[in-house]
Design a protein around this nucleic acid. Structure first.
Lengths: 167, 167
DNA sequence: TATTGTTATACTCTATAACTATA
DNA sequence: TATAGTTATAGAGTATAACAATA
């Protein structure tokens, strides 16, 4: 529990890494939201598409557990995506209580489009950096994410206070 | 408007810089909120303390303009800070409509404490990086913030849709 | 009785407009 | 008439509990 003696040299608060990260995170999230709005999506929809893209057939309970939100919160969110024909709730074989969640063809295409948006954003965002610096930045951030116990590929905003009790 | 031809090599979406920044930003904001909660503050309170620390005597209108929020939103926020005795609304000399906002002694102390929290967070956050890497990270982020036209020291979350019309 | 998904309720946050008191 | 600050209202988002169907 004792804080390690080693301290980063104190800089102006405006250039502190936490503040810069918080600034950039808010900026990126807002910009991302603006850019996927024409697809009918909000950022949390995109996160669900992302998970379903790699975990086809997952149930709503399992998805809720993975994201760290209450299952009830997922209902409206999946309703939105179903209304847009991006996901399907298929009957689970052998258990009529649960659904197996799948991306539709349109869902896969939209998920790919979201990936393109992210790639465009990366170019805009890193306009001030050269290729080598972009790599360094991605590497440093990836190492921090790993060390901070953040689940790779899952956005921490889902978790905020949510999730079921057992955790 | 034509996008520059130069593109960053396409990586997995989970390691894209925008996604990593959004993840880290949410993580940092949440952690910061947890750590200043014992002071009776939310992150947006801290942002106001920060501005008042360097712009003593500013009016509410001016502060609202600086942060990019509606003046009405500031009212409750400043009420909170006044209730905690961290700020004072002093009479403006020569204009009985407006107040001059000032940090109290307790407000200055709390603002310093918030700075300490940020410094502690920087150490925790950068535990996976050595001193040189921390400097590099701060430098890269600072350059992106500058290039993206984000006002240094002002958190973009205030701006979201807020502000007065003329902008 | 336990579990899956859903609905219902209440609470926070905050954009916006209307208001008051000065100017 | 215009401006500084305030109050009021309404709508979005979401945590939590209660519920219905199935196991």
């Amino acid at each position: 529990m004792a804080a390690p003696p080693k301290k980063t040299a104190r800089k102006s608060p405006k250039s502190s890494v936490p503040f810069l990260l918080s600034q950039m995170g808010a900026h990126v999230s807002a910009t991302f939201g603006d850019r996927i709005a024409p697809l009918g999506l909000k950022p949390y929809h995109a996160g669900v598409l992302s998970v379903l893209g790699s975990k086809a057939g997952i149930t709503q309970q399992a998805l809720a557990g993975l994201l760290g939100v209450f299952p009830s919160r997922l209902v409206g969110l999946l309703d939105d995506l179903a209304r847009l024909n991006f996901i399907e709730r298929r009957a689970s074989p052998g258990n009529r209580r649960s659904y197996a969640l799948h991306l539709t063809k349109a869902g896969h295409e939209t998920w790919a489009r979201v990936g393109e948006v992210a790639a465009e954003m990366q170019d805009d965002l890193c306009a001030a950096l050269n290729d080598k610096e972009r790599e360094v930045l991605a590497d440093l951030l990836t190492r921090i994410v790993a060390q901070q116990q953040i689940t790779p590929g899952i956005h921490p905003a889902y978790r905020r206070m949510g999730g079921m009790c057992g955790e």
